[in-house]
């Protein structure tokens, strides 16, 4: 019965192969979790940065922008926006000055009416994300 192609063998290989590669993936993920502290600047995470991430999420910024290249492709990458616009104040001013009815004919950012503290938190969060060691992505300041 050599050279047969039995379904039971195919099923066993499916179980063996899947378990094998899932364990391998867990091993690599475990090592990643061990290496991350040296790369993700978690020691710099302040309550303000945490609040900033909360603002980032509750305004669904990811629905138009990308952060570290992930998200929507409608608006610019924001992981390096503080560096691109020059300062946190510039970023805060930009967010604050969004016209309520948008800019005629242009892609428009809503006016979120953020308080000063919320603006500070959001700017701190974006500045923090830029310090993460992400294999120096993006290729240039334009993001």
């Amino acid at each position: 019965m050599s050279g047969a192609f039995t379904k039971s063998m195919a099923r066993n290989i499916f179980y063996g192969g899947t378990t094998f590669f899932f364990l391998l993936f867990l091993a690599l993920s475990f090592d990643t979790m061990k290496q991350l502290p040296k790369r993700d600047m978690r020691q710099n995470i302040t309550p303000s940065i945490i609040a900033g991430k909360h603002i980032w999420e509750t305004r669904d910024c990811i629905g138009c922008h990308t952060l570290m290249g992930e998200g929507a492709y409608f608006a610019p990458e924001l992981a390096n926006v503080v560096e691109r616009l020059g300062s946190k104040e510039a970023v805060k001013a930009f967010i604050q000055s969004r016209p309520v009815d948008g800019i005629p004919g242009r892609r428009s950012m809503p006016q979120f009416n953020l308080t000063d503290k919320e603006l500070d938190d959001l700017a701190n969060f974006l500045e923090h994300v830029n310090t993460i060691n992400d294999a120096n992505w993006p290729p240039n300041i334009q993001g």
Binding site: S2, G3, A4, I13
Partner: peptide, 27 residues
């Protein structure tokens, strides 16, 4: 399927004319 299960082979000529035989299961 410990018994001799008749295996329908979609491809791979295990016992072709020259009597060549692939050891083990095609999978």
């Amino acid at each position: 399927s410990a018994t001799m299960s008749v295996a329908v082979r979609p491809s791979g000529p295990p016992n072709d004319a020259s009597g060549a035989r692939l050891p083990g299961d095609l999978a």
